[in-house]
Simulated assay, not measured.
Amino acid sequence: MRHRRIADTGVELTGLGFGGSPLGNLYRKTSAADATDAIEAAWSAGVRYFDTAPHYGLGLSERRLGAALRHRPRAEYVVSSKVGRLLVPNEHPRGMDTEGFAVRDDLRREWDFSRDGVMRSIEATLERMGLDRLDVVYLHDPDDHWRQAAEEAMPALAELRDQGVVGAVGAGMNQSAMLARFLRETPTDVVMLAGRYSLLDQSALDDVLPAALELGKGVVAVGVFNSGLLSQDRPDQGMKYDYRIAPPALVDRARAIAEVCTAHGTTLPAAAIAFPYSHPSIINVTVGMRSAEQVARNVELHRRHVPDALWGELRARGLIRSDVPTDYGRERSSRCP
């Protein structure tokens, strides 16, 4: 796959990235064999960007990803993880984690965006993964911690970057406004934007995407299926949108988009993966994967042709915003193998 560089750094990402949250048993268990097979399938398909976090399965995702990559040449892949949630012993375990992962709760998460917390978190991640360095480190969901994240955590990450300990630094969130602040007010190189530039939500056009374009910074798009509603050819009632059951009106809108996709010879999931590349600041789309079968499907969707005329009709029908950029051909050619 083609690579695109995070501006002003030496870090390059493949157009499609491997999201590691399912390796941490997100919503349900993923077997160790399936996790390994998924990573091996991604590697065979040319994926070289792998994202994880301590939050994902209380360290399980990091351990599994590190073990599967350990025999690969370190210079040939890029790993990102996150800081902000320290894993500490749980003095009062109840048996199972309560934050969406099917794992035991022997550990618990503790919010910490202090300099010391950043250093401790990175050290623990490296130990869990068996690595000597991370290529990208993101602040993880600092929504309620702006001051400490901006004044303590980000300067600490920037110092590590300037020392060559990490390659690039940034923040990852489910909102776009604060990500724009990180780009404009802190030494951020790249942001991970979850769900705010998709076929159902283009709110990032109001803040973070213009900021990234103006400053020459990179954006990694995640959550492009909006928790599942855009993941099937024909959405149905009861599917999730942003981690909750989608409202009926939103399901109807997704169905209308799907009908236009069908008329143009493509599918809703293929369009969902292709859409973020419409904006020149987006350098990567990362998708969560838990099996070799899911990897094969997502790689095929990533490579599938999506005609330019689709976007024009979606705009004309008011199904996407009229100010979505139009230079799809250039962006699509940059992501194809």
Results as ranks from 00 to 15, higher is better:
Ser80Thr: 06
Val166Trp: 05
Tyr56Pro: 02
Gln232Ser: 14
Val118Ser: 07
Glu110Ala: 13
Leu215Arg: 13
Asp308Met: 09
Pro155Met: 10
Tyr77Arg: 04
Ala263Phe: 03
Leu23Tyr: 06
Gly312Pro: 02
Leu209Phe: 08
Val324Thr: 06
Val295Met: 08
Glu300Trp: 15
Arg234Glu: 12
Arg4Ala: 12
Phe113His: 01
Ala124Cys: 05
Ala67His: 09
Asp323Glu: 15
Tyr49Pro: 14
Gly57Trp: 07
Gly223Lys: 00
His302Trp: 15
Arg94Cys: 08
Asp141Gly: 00
Arg315Asn: 05
Gly20Val: 09
His140Arg: 06
Arg321Asn: 14
Arg64Gly: 03
Ser227Gly: 09
Ser333Gln: 13
Val306Phe: 12
Leu160Ser: 01
Leu310Arg: 09
Leu205Cys: 10
Leu205Asn: 08
Arg72Thr: 04
Val299Ser: 11
Val222Trp: 05
Glu259Gln: 14
Trp311Ser: 01
Met154Val: 01
Glu99Tyr: 06
Leu69Asn: 04
His279Asp: 06
Ser291Asn: 08
Glu300Val: 12
Arg48His: 06
Arg64Leu: 10
Gln232Ala: 13
Asp135Cys: 11
Glu99Ala: 08
Gly66Thr: 09
Asp327Ser: 12
Leu183Ile: 12
Val219Ser: 00
Arg255His: 08
Ser114His: 11
Ser291Cys: 07
Val260Arg: 03
Thr14Ser: 12
Leu230Thr: 03
Glu76Tyr: 00
Gly238Ala: 03
Pro187Ala: 11
Ala177Asn: 09
Leu16Ser: 00
Tyr241Ile: 06
Ala204Met: 02
Pro280Val: 13
Asp132Asn: 08
Asn284Arg: 00
Val165Gly: 03
Phe275Lys: 00
Val118Gly: 11
Val299Ile: 13
Ala45His: 08
Asn226Lys: 01
Glu91Asp: 12
Asn90Glu: 13
Ser334Lys: 04
Arg315Ile: 10
Tyr138Met: 12
Gln175Leu: 09
Ala68Asp: 02
His145Val: 01
Asp51Gly: 01
Tyr197His: 12
Asn226Phe: 00
Lys217Trp: 03
Gly265Leu: 13
Ala168Gly: 05
Ile6Ala: 06
Asp8Ser: 15
Thr30Val: 15
Gly95Met: 02
Gly216Glu: 05
Leu314Ser: 02
Val166Leu: 14
Leu193Tyr: 05
Asp97Met: 09
Met129Val: 11
Pro337Cys: 02
Met96Glu: 15
Arg64Ile: 10
Ala102Trp: 14
Val260Asp: 02
Ser203Thr: 11
His145Ala: 04
Pro22Lys: 00
Val287His: 01
Gly167Thr: 06
Val165Gln: 08
Ser61Gly: 05
Pro155Glu: 11
Thr188Cys: 15
Ala258Glu: 03
Pro307Arg: 15
Ala271Lys: 00
Ala246Asn: 07
Ser203Phe: 03
Val219Gly: 05
Gln294Thr: 02
Leu319Met: 10
Ala211Asp: 02
Gly46Gln: 09
Arg332Val: 04
Arg5Ser: 11
Tyr328Met: 10
Val285Ser: 05
Val137Ile: 13
